[in-house]
Design a binder for these strands. Structure first.
Length: 262
DNA sequence: ATGGCGAATGCAATTCGA
């Protein structure tokens, strides 16, 4: 089974790229982030014609996630509150950032972590609090029986210095600060492993390049889009790759797709 | 250090992303 994740930075703008990519790359499911569209305006028909079932959780202008799947998903849940039954969590579902469903016995969790603006800002604190809610969410799901987990998405965190084009002077940078890394490591301690690192240990592999200052041309990137698997799926994993081809196209997303096979 | 670019909104200029 192949599962891909791709922050498309507007599905309406990137629609042709996603179609072309799907035509050239067979996947069982594609997790999309930053769709930036309300559900009724998501171009569902386009992808249904290609043979996908389409599950969306979007909003106007910002955020938004979706899963395209070759087969119907079971137990689809949108938002945190469908899993974490706590009224204090409701505020986190104002931003549409998480959707999950089960495909062939694997629970796919597709998420878009807040970017956090700058260290110490209100948005930074929101990011850290969001990650705490995510831990509760995953804890609840892991209590459910017998599904491998594939937690995919744009995490907006580079876990290690080698995941950044220039590790110097990044200690005090959004996406690589200690608190963000600790928050993510705390989540991974539930029993999730970065499948990309099963296959590649060296640095200089990135999934996002800033539009500004020709980040891609100079390969000044960050590896912030991840796929985390529970141990059994991790053992079964056959490959995990980043496809930088779509990043080379005219008017690209600033992120590249990441694909895992197991 | 700052700003660079791109998308959305809504129709000019601002906000947001990372």
């Amino acid at each position: 089974m192949k599962i891909a994740t791709w922050n498309v930075n507007s599905i309406r703008v990137r629609q042709p790229h996603v179609i072309e990519w799907l035509n050239n790359n067979y996947v069982d499911a594609l997790c999309l982030q930053e769709t930036k569209v309300v559900d009724e305006n998501f171009p569902k028909n386009t992808f249904e014609k290609l043979g996908y079932y389409v599950y969306v959780y979007g909003q106007k202008a910002y955020n938004g996630v979706a899963i395209l799947s070759r087969y119907p998903l079971e137990n689809v849940n949108i938002g945190f509150t469908s899993i974490v039954k706590d009224s204090l969590v409701e505020e986190f579902d104002k931003q549409k950032r998480i959707i999950t469903g089960i495909l062939n016995g694997v629970r796919i969790i597709n998420l878009y972590v807040p970017n956090g603006a700058s260290i110490g800002s209100e948005k930074y604190n929101y990011k850290l609090r969001w990650l705490k809610v995510l831990k509760r969410y995953l804890t609840e799901i892991l209590d459910q029986p017998n599904h491998g987990l594939c937690v995919c998405g744009d995490f907006n965190i580079a876990l290690e210095d080698k995941d950044i084009y220039d590790s110097k002077s990044k200690d005090n940078h959004i996406m690589s600060s200690q608190l963000e890394r600790e928050a993510l490591k705390d989540i991974l301690s539930l029993g999730l492993k970065d499948v990309f690192r099963k296959f590649i240990s060296e640095g200089n592999y990135f999934s996002w390049w800033d539009y500004r200052a020709s980040g891609f041309k100079h390969n000044r990137g960050w590896r912030i889009d991840h796929q985390y698997l529970t141990p059994e799926l991790y053992r079964k994993a056959l490959s995990c790759t980043i496809d930088i081809e779509p990043r080379k196209l005219v008017r690209p997303s600033d992120h590249a797709p990441v694909i895992v096979e197991f």
